[in-house]
Design a protein around this nucleic acid. Structure first.
Lengths: 140, 140
DNA sequence: GATTAATAGTTCGTATACAAAGGATTATTA
DNA sequence: TAATAATCCTTTGTATACGAACTATTAATC
């Protein structure tokens, strides 16, 4: 006999997936007001940390597949959030920069992620928060 | 000044998403040998728990969007993992059943998830494992 | 210096994920 | 019972996610 409601909460793939879905779902709604997605927001934060990164570098930082990145970056160029500049020294590379539009919203956007994070974690004690983050980092 | 490598590990949406990706990525490879995806595997486990569920009931159990389920179930019918039977009492409903093909692999498939789960958690002490699962459940 | 290997990106195919709208059917209610 | 609401499911459109194959370009090696 196979159980499930008892087994499901034991399955990490399930737990992680659904916890992510829940957390992502809320943040997503907030970001929709800006016309951004979570991954697009992460790209901006990545570039604010190190303006001029290549797609490959960004992929490494954000643990993102290059094929996935290709589409995300294309949409962000189309919607005016980032700019691609070819590298004169290496024809394979395009360096990535945030746009004026993005930089004007920088403070607000960074604050949105902080708020979302607090909202997700507010049900935990500070100890639990630190512990959860440590355990998740160990999984990555 | 915006940081990122210091801030990223603080962001729950990021941590949860990447931890899920990592865990899912490994399980995915194992399941590929069977021609199944994680969600399709979950559908089978759901139906083994309660054969004859409707799509709506399954969605509730697996915390899955109905639109998402629609596609998954269609593919699983096409590949012969499940069967849809119309309900004579309610024309809106189709009851879902696992196929012979699925039931023949039942033990193996259930074992695959257990193995995957162990593999994901092996780096933690038993205490940490229980704690992590509790914290994740609280997030859902 | 020509061949081979490695790297950067793109493109394609498939599978979620989900908002929104639509069609069919059943339940409710005035 | 006719009109309305609720439910079930599908379809459409957009955004990841990622394996695999492909192009272009640079690096390595013989």
């Amino acid at each position: 006999m196979s159980k499930l409601p008892e087994d499901l909460p034991e399955c990490m793939v399930f737990l992680l997936g659904k916890a992510y879905q829940k957390a992502h779902g809320n943040f997503k709604k907030q970001l929709k007001n800006y016309g951004l997605t979570n991954m697009q927001h992460l790209v901006l934060e990545g570039l604010w940390y190190d303006e001029g990164m290549t797609a490959a570098e960004l992929c490494k930082l954000l643990i993102m597949d290059k094929a996935t990145a290709s589409g995300i970056l294309e949409r962000m160029v189309d919607t005016g959030w980032i700019i691609k500049k070819p590298d004169p020294d290496d024809g394979r590379i395009q360096k990535l920069y945030t746009s004026k539009k993005a930089n004007q919203m920088k403070e607000k956007l960074i604050d949105e992620r902080k708020k979302a994070n607090k909202h997700i974690l507010k049900k935990f004690t500070l100890e639990e928060q630190l512990l959860l983050k440590r355990l998740l980092r160990d999984l990555i």
